[in-house]
Amino acid sequence: MNGQQPSFVSHYDPYVYQALNTLVGKPITVQTTKNPVQGMLSSVAPDHIVIEINEVPFFIRTQEIVWISPF
């Protein structure tokens, strides 16, 4: 054994996370690398957010977010 341990690396955008937390419960538009998503920001985790569109939750990786705008 060479003593190596597997390690998990998670990319973390601390200021994006902080900004998203101020928008919980509000309607926002998120441009992802694929599509724009518009709905109510229901929760924020360090690596993903949950947006509800007509009460249907969409879990979006923070790494896939290009920009965020409240509307």
């Binding site: 538009t29 441009q31 599509n35 724009p36 998503v37 518009q38 705008s69 509307f71």
Partner: peptide
């Protein structure tokens, strides 16, 4: 659906 978002034209 899912391509555009609701915003003012200048955005």
């Amino acid at each position: 659906k899912g391509t555009s978002f609701t915003a003012e034209p200048d955005l």
